[in-house]
Write a protein that binds this DNA or RNA. Structure first.
Lengths: 327, 327
DNA sequence: AGGATTATTGTAATCGTTTACATGAATGAA
DNA sequence: TTCATTCATGTAAACGATTACAATAATCCT
């Protein structure tokens, strides 16, 4: 790979001039610009990102923090992030934390090292204190999961409202015994969705029985399946389920199928996220769609604005209840 | 963030000595080593990767090329890659090409720029000529999909054998009319799995009807569903299906369910990959398991050896047929 | 023409490391 | 004691870019 000096030599100018051509500084005459561009072309020169970064202390790399790459919920958001980032000349580094503080520390150090210019955190398991502290010094935005105190800008949806509407949908269909399969309530989204659930139940005068609320400690299919197993064994068995993620809902559905119960006749079920697999289950899953791709795009724009020192406002996006066969 | 010079000053030595301490050069006296380590600790110093990279022209970053992050097949491999890479002091940059040559070009340039030290390609849609050319100069390994000419080291499984065994399993169950849902045969794995299918059919004297072989142009659920729709409409309808990926098999299963046919009684089905969903379908899917995590680990080790200039040999791993309810 | 502007280009310092080489101190041998 | 050898450390150049500043060339105005 040619260096800037070789280009300079070939074009008969100094490295400084070549640099000016590359960066579109206006102070280069048309004649030399042509010569330089010719030389760049002939040598197939590409500026070394390393050299540039060192000097500018910018890397044009964005960190995206997710707990696990296996969770399809993130895929679509990441698509949005990637498309937008590349369009703006940034690359993204996907950081799977596996909810492991050591990994998290590695990635946090990358930004301190100026190896990355900013962070988009989608990790609900992130160390909040550390993240907030880091956000004082470095550009950080949150997507989906966020801090309520507003110390970090975010893109999200109204989780409470979405959950409220999902449960209301079940109620309108005549359901009265509605269970909730929630994830750990240390996550804000879990607390908010629970509130939406309770709000709808209360509004229609339905009982909120604690035995109908199952809290999973993990996020996989198995957890949903396990939750449903417990719910089905109750003396007063619920006739509908609202699960806070499609993954959990699909696990629950599996357990219902195993027990030869019919969906939605015996048990209706609503998920959350509209992952692609939710349309492949039998029956297909009613779910809450988040504008995932769009959320990814907006997060990147927000982050880049922050990097450039602009002030940014948090965004709450619209969601949509997608009614399919499971209700 | 402190620099090496600040550490040097605090410890009362030169930057060179600090550098030697950091890199475990043996020529530092115990006394000064202690002083330097103390200073590093007090200043919470972390070496700048940028400066180091520029000097060494190494980045300790590995590129992982995949067509799409949404495909769960890659998730588990990536887990293996990530764990191993981090353990060896490397980070990985997940590169989603979306089968887009422009994106591919961006990533290829990163390695030419020395922004990355090597590439693990898992992308069957990659431009083979460019990849092979690049592999002459830079460390590159392939995982799963590979080049038969042996110009690039790889980690893979015996696709033909795996397909052969999957189909043989169907035959042993008494199936005679076995269809194949394949992906585009420009991919080596597709050609190999087809050969395995044909080998088994031939060996047991079963007819290979071209109308029983459906080739999808995409890799999503919909393609599998579409394929099954066509197969079900045949006058001479197959009674079993071998799909070359779980995604396709799940789509096919969906279509079978829609038509109120029973699996496996009316139609048996075998997938490939053992993605996590394959255990959540109703019925659960018989499939071929690849040692995905392990493949990821081995790819990284292979690549790092290549980076260090060692000679490496390609590896063919063992697979396993996982028999579940769909057969 | 001569001085003042302005446009263009070059020089050299800088970013944070690593490392070949130089230097000086400590040690050992005679 | 004196010289050779070894050990520990420092000096300075490099990696490849960017950019403040200086220097020169071109242009304009009176």
């Amino acid at each position: 790979m040619a260096t800037i000096h070789e280009v300079a030599q070939k074009a008969g100018v100094s490295a400084a001039t070549v640099s000016r051509v590359i960066n579109n500084r206006n102070t280069v005459s048309e004649k030399t610009r042509m010569r330089v561009e010719q030389a760049i072309h002939e040598l197939e020169y590409e500026p070394s990102v390393l050299g540039r970064n060192l000097r500018n202390s910018e890397s044009r790399l964005l960190l995206v923090l997710i707990p696990s790459i296996s969770n399809p919920f993130y895929s679509e958001i990441i698509n949005g992030i990637e498309d937008t980032a590349i369009a703006q000349g940034y690359n993204i580094l996907l950081c799977e934390t596996d909810s492991n503080p050591n990994r998290e520390a590695i990635y946090f150090n990358m930004i301190r090292n100026r190896l990355a210019d900013g962070i988009i955190s989608m990790d609900p398991t992130v160390n909040k204190e550390k993240l907030i502290e880091l956000a004082n010094t470095y550009p950080i935005v949150q997507c989906s999961e966020y801090e309520k105190d507003g110390s970090i800008s975010y893109v999200t949806i109204d989780n409470e409202l979405a959950a409220y509407q999902a449960v209301k949908h079940l109620i309108k269909l005549g359901q009265k015994k509605i269970a909730l399969i929630n994830s750990d309530e240390k996550f804000l989204y879990a607390r908010e969705r629970r509130q939406g659930y309770e709000k709808a139940m209360r509004e229609f005068g339905l009982p909120i029985k604690s035995e109908w609320i199952y809290i999973t400690d993990q996020l996989g299919f198995q957890s949903g399946q396990q939750a449903m197993r417990v719910l089905l064994n109750l003396a007063d068995r619920p006739t509908a389920v609202f699960a806070v993620s499609d993954i959990l809902a699909i696990g629950a559905l599996k357990e219902i199928n195993i027990n030869d119960l019919r969906v939605p006749q015996d048990i209706a079920i609503v998920g959350f996220d509209k992952i692609s697999f939710s349309n492949m289950t039998h029956p297909t899953l009613t779910t809450v769609a988040q504008p995932m791709y769009k959320m990814g795009c907006l997060s990147v724009n927000m982050l880049i604005n922050k990097i450039r020192g602009k002030k940014v406002d948090s965004i709450v996006m619209d969601h949509e209840l997608v009614i399919r066969q499971s209700t």
